Amino acid sequence: MNGPRPVLESMWRGALGLGLFAIVTAGVVSGTRALTAERIAENRLESQYRVLEEVLPEALAQVDVEQLLANTATLPASEALGQPDAFTVWRAGQGEAQVAILPVVARDGYSGDIALLVGIDRQRHVTGVRVIRHQETPGLGDKIERRKSDWVESFEGRSLGDPAPERWTVGKQGGEFDAFTGATVTPRAVIGAVRRSLEFSAEHHALLFDIPENEEGTP
């Protein structure tokens, strides 16, 4: 006749088995999440590599991306660039051929924030602009994406004097840049963000390009 002891042993074995199963399952889930998170991070980094290269001038298009990512500077928070905290800028090239890539957030998009990368050379000209994140209306505001339209290429070579300050807006407001049919707010937000990037570059030129004080007079 079975007593209480075999029953208790059976219960303990069952509980132990369930515990071990839970531990193994948790380990597998945790490992899968870690691998998935690592792959997502790698994919994001690769995507960032490609976009960084796209805002560089042709002369620097073949720059070593690892070198580009290693040559960074941390700048203080900037309301103009939509950066509430210290942020990273990337540099490519040397001397007069140097280009800085600024992460900029336009807070006045039609459907929310618009995140961009803006390349500016040491002569204070835009080398390229790419939108990396937005929530604008598909078929209208999403033409700010390079894969949807070449509109962002209209900034290449521009500076604070080209066009004049008052013409840094959409055409229907007397500006230099085209708007999209049915969408004015979105392109206007991007135009404003690029102009503010140029103003920031002019104001923080030496810091942005790591120019010694005795050379700051160089344009």
Rank of each mutant, 00 (worst) to 15 (best):
G157E: 14
A164W: 05
S159D: 09
D108T: 13
V99N: 03
S78W: 08
E199V: 13
R133S: 11
E53T: 13
L160H: 01
D64Y: 10
Q83N: 09
A15K: 02
A106T: 07
D113F: 13
A77M: 10
S201W: 03
R33M: 14
V55Q: 04
Q135W: 07
Q135K: 05
V89F: 10
Q135M: 03
L116H: 03
M11Y: 09
T169V: 01
L208Y: 05
R158I: 05
E53F: 07
E153A: 14
A97G: 07
L60D: 03
A106V: 09
G17T: 14
K148L: 12
P219S: 06
E153T: 11
A34P: 00
A164M: 08
Q83F: 08
G217Q: 08
G31M: 14
R39H: 11
R91I: 06
E145I: 02
G27K: 11
V99T: 04
W12D: 09
T137D: 06
N71A: 12
V51G: 02
T169D: 00
Y110N: 02
V131N: 03
A61D: 04
R147W: 11
F155H: 08
R124E: 15
E166Y: 08
A97R: 07
L60W: 09
Q48D: 11
V152T: 09
R196G: 02
S197T: 09
P163S: 07
R146F: 07
R5E: 14
R13K: 12
T25Q: 10
G112M: 13
G19P: 05
P57L: 12
M1C: 01
S10I: 10
G93V: 12
A206E: 04
L45M: 05
Q48Y: 11
A73E: 01
V29N: 01
L81S: 02
G14L: 13
A59M: 00
D150A: 13
E216T: 12
V29K: 01
T72I: 11
G14C: 05
P57E: 12
T72K: 11
E53P: 00
G161R: 09
Q62N: 14
L160I: 04
T36D: 08
E96H: 10
Y110Q: 04
T184C: 03
V170F: 00
W12E: 12
Q62P: 00
E213P: 02
A189Q: 03
A34K: 06
G14A: 09
R50N: 05
V63W: 07
F177N: 00
L116K: 02
V131K: 03
H205V: 08
T218Q: 14
A80K: 06
G119R: 07
V7N: 08
Q62I: 03
R13M: 15
V55H: 04
F200S: 00
P138G: 04
R33T: 08
L81T: 03
K172T: 10
G139M: 11
V7R: 13
A37Q: 09
R167Y: 01
G93H: 12
D85R: 13
G128F: 10
S159F: 13
N214I: 08
R133Y: 07
T137G: 04
L52F: 13
S159V: 07
E66S: 06
A26E: 06
V129Y: 04
R146E: 03
G139V: 06
E199T: 07
G192Y: 05
R167P: 00
A70T: 05
V131G: 01
A183S: 12
L8H: 01
R44I: 04
Q173P: 00
E166T: 06
E53G: 11
P6S: 03
L18I: 15
R107H: 12
V126R: 03
